[in-house]
Design a protein around this nucleic acid. Structure first.
Lengths: 191, 191
DNA sequence: CCATTCAGTAAACAGTCGTTTGCCGAACTT
DNA sequence: AAGTTCGGCAAACGACTGTTTACTGAATGG
């Protein structure tokens, strides 16, 4: 049922999805839906969890790898690109419903992204560059990184349909922007 | 009719909007809709134009004002906050449909944001800090700024419903992140 | 002053929708 | 072996949907 929903949401909105539509796609009877979810919103938050699980392991794999800023950035962009390629529907779902019309889903995504930011912040705190940074500033930096990650993923989503040239353009821009941020970070002195 | 649609879209998705729904809200008969739009998608792109008109004047007002980086940033964040306050529905519509389920609307928004980036890029090129920057790099920087502007606006949208404390938090984060970027920009040397 | 466009209407069309109900077989539990 | 939960079904309910058609009055223009 989750797969059916995800498939339908390829070119549709969660709010415009119908119970019958989902069950039809899944090859079940309409009543079967209510055996598993009370709402379509509930199916939405289930999809959020499913989608962010894979994203989570991706983030960890980037954070685990230590190394110079340049290498980390290159690797991060590569990992994002590959992740989008392998989980198109999940990424599309997240990017579409992050500001979508179903509050419960929006909130679930936001909460999970917040947890990501916490994780990124913890990793940043361990790096020597962060000496003297307040916790608040680290948090805001982490949010900036997470936000860029999401934006980049959305951009890849569209780019991968427009040929590899545009795809390389996105990767270049992402690397440039991340380098700029990390450069600013190194020259930052207190707020 | 546009106003009716915008009002409905406060807690709904363009893709899940109905013709009858709109006309009912507008106090007209269903058939009247087709006198003005062939599609709901057409109403969508009309709303895009309406929404981005006001955004456009906002951007210009920020770009026009010269001054130190700090002052420009502070003023930009203030202008964004005020704009969101005065045009809640428009901003919500844009943020929701930017990655929404209706392709024509998505493309209209993207095209317009691209034009914004061009405008921002032109303004950045005039500043002395940009000596030696390639056009490509300037473009990517401009896109980073536009993207942050949109993200910040979305954040304000949610924050203004959660009280002024959260609102100040968003403003602080936005200023911090913009300062970090402009710092990176000053220390950038070629790509 | 006549013709035409404009913006609106009511009515009808055939579908689709969400949800509830009662029923059923299979699989577990005890 | 008996009982209970689980996941599934068909059928039915009324309500709502997008779109077309034929018609109407007012404004506009020559």
């Amino acid at each position: 049922m989750l797969d059916a929903g995800l498939h339908l949401l390829a070119d549709q909105n969660l709010a415009s999805l119908g119970v019958r539509e989902v069950t039809r796609e899944a090859g079940l009877s309409p009543a079967a839906f209510y055996r598993h979810f009370p709402d379509l919103a509930a199916l939405g938050v289930a999809l959020v969890e499913e989608s962010l699980a894979s994203l989570h392991v991706m983030i960890r794999s980037v954070l685990a790898e230590a190394g110079g800023a340049e290498e980390v950035i290159d690797r991060a962009v590569d990992v994002i690109e590959q992740h989008v390629r392998e989980h198109r529907s999940h990424v599309r779902f997240l990017s579409r419903e992050r500001h979508g019309g179903v509050r419960q889903v929006r909130e679930a995504i936001d909460a999970e992204l917040g947890r990501f930011a916490t994780e990124v912040g913890a990793a940043l705190a361990l790096q020597p560059v962060s000496r003297g940074w307040s916790e608040r500033d680290l948090r805001m930096l982490a949010e900036l990184y997470v936000d860029r990650m999401v934006s980049t993923a959305s951009a890849f989503l569209e780019a991968q349909e427009s040929g590899p040239a545009r795809e390389r353009g996105i990767a270049d821009a992402a690397r440039f922007q991340l380098r700029l941020i990390s450069l600013g970070r190194r020259h930052w002195q207190g707020s």
